[in-house]
Design a protein around this nucleic acid. Sequence first.
DNA 1: AAGTATACCAACCGCGAGCGC
DNA 2: GGCGCTCGCGGTTGGTATACT
Length: 192
Amino acid sequence: MARLDSSNRSEASRGAWAAEEDRKLAQVIEIHGPRRWKLIAAKAGLDRCGKSCRLRWMNYLRPNIKRGNISDQEEDLIVRLHKLLGNRWSLIAGRLPGRTDNEIKNYWNSHLSKKMKQNEKQKKVSRDEKIETLSNIITKGSLEGPSTRDDETNNYNVGKEVVFDCSSHEEPLNMEWMSKFLELDERWLDFV
DNA sequence: AAGTATACCAACCGCGAGCGC
DNA sequence: GGCGCTCGCGGTTGGTATACT
């Protein structure tokens, strides 16, 4: 059974913070420092729980907070860090001065996750198209069109520039073989 | 202009970890 | 070791603004 969190479910008020509440909170933190949040809430005479005070401070009132307008550079960094760290927002935020974990999480959920999904979808379509091209070359023996076979080197030439090097692979060139090849050498797809 | 859908973001909630008693 | 308190994190909710029909 889940442990009850004494800082939750208090009788404290909820909802948006008023400017007056912000002012009182900042005043108390200036004196006592940003710790012992329950005490801070009491000292400030706020009808808020300590947890709520902490959140307000961390995400809004803390000095040096940057708000809004995430730059392209920052966005790029978020994407790369998310790739590396996953949903570890506080770690990601730690790399972006002035940004809070909550802001980054919100930004990811409202902007970047959609963007990423679109990219993935596009990637998949493009990969499927490439595989279909390969499949046509192999299953239909279709060395017509843009592809040719060089009998001396045993290579498949696709288009003007691309050479599919078969010299290190055994015939027959079938789909099973090809899928194994693709798993091993995804780079090849980029050529087709 | 009014109603509805969607996007955005501040705030809330549940949970786990750390610490002192 | 057990308990209560505090803190921090990540997921989720809900209110408001904006876009769309």
